Amino acid sequence: MFLSSLKIMFALPIFFFFFFTPSLSSNNIILFGDAFLSASSIILTRENNCSYQPPLQTTALSSVGRAFFEKPVRFLDPSINATAFSCSFSFTITKTNSCPFGDGFAFLVTSNASSFSLTDGYMGLPPGIQASSDQDSYFAVEFDTSFDRNLEDINDNHIGIDVNNVKSLASIDVVSKGLDLKNGKEMTAWIEYRDSEKMISVWVGYSGEVRPLSPVLVAQIDLSKQFKEFMHIGFTASNGKGSSIHIVNKWRFKTVLGLPPSTKPQQGIV
């Protein structure tokens, strides 16, 4: 389905890089629900007629849109159990009718690409998992445009970090950072995790070329305890009772297995 470039570079026996820049007009993407490819973009959701709300039992898969890279990506080396990754992508959230905004979208790393929720406000993310040795696991950075008190959302314009639960373990009101997910402008997000620091960092800005100096959100988490050796990467979105078009483009991704702790962090991909 799509790859404009694919590089696997072996630098030392103890670590390697996996890096790709998707060409979003080709076919290395698996699509679910309402998601489709258009020109050089992934369109995750379509416009809803929110004046019609079907009974819960007839809610269709089309209330959710998902797009994943075709093949699972290796995140862990069993001999060292450590990983680092970074990605960047540009996105736009637009609304063209009088309906409220949809639920939002999320960048998603998951062990099960076909596991999703149709519940309003969840962006297609599973609500949570029970502890077991063979459980599905996921990590998500959500760009949330719908307030849900039951999910402990801080407002209807925030970014959150989710690990195996749609209730965010950390979140930030983006308006307080001079950003607005709802203004219809293209924005760029950079996400980076380094196992040596057990730290996930998220930067967001209006420039697609220059990453801001300071992240808008940082959280301490050991993803090596959450990830399986191979995980799926992609995006998920839902509209719930609203109507937004969630668009993703210019997606780049890189993993680094077994990066020595003394090595300086790689620059974010732009």
Rank of each mutant, 00 (worst) to 15 (best):
L12M: 14
F20E: 14
I29W: 11
F32I: 06
F32V: 02
A39C: 04
S40C: 01
E47C: 06
P54W: 09
L56T: 12
T58W: 10
G65V: 01
R66M: 12
E70L: 13
D77C: 13
A84R: 05
S86C: 03
C87V: 03
F91G: 06
T92W: 00
K95Q: 04
N97Y: 03
F101A: 08
G102Y: 00
G104Y: 02
T110A: 08
T110K: 09
S115P: 06
L118R: 10
G121E: 07
Y122Q: 06
G124C: 04
Q135I: 04
Y138L: 05
V141G: 06
D144L: 00
L151M: 11
E152Q: 14
E152A: 12
D153W: 09
G160S: 03
M187A: 05
A189L: 00
Y193G: 00
Y193D: 01
D195P: 03
V202K: 04
V204Q: 09
Y206C: 01
G208A: 14
P212K: 15
P212M: 15
S214R: 12
L217K: 06
L217V: 04
I221Y: 02
K225S: 14
K225C: 09
F235I: 10
G240E: 06
I247M: 05
V248F: 09
N249S: 14
F253M: 11
P265D: 10
P265A: 05
I269F: 08
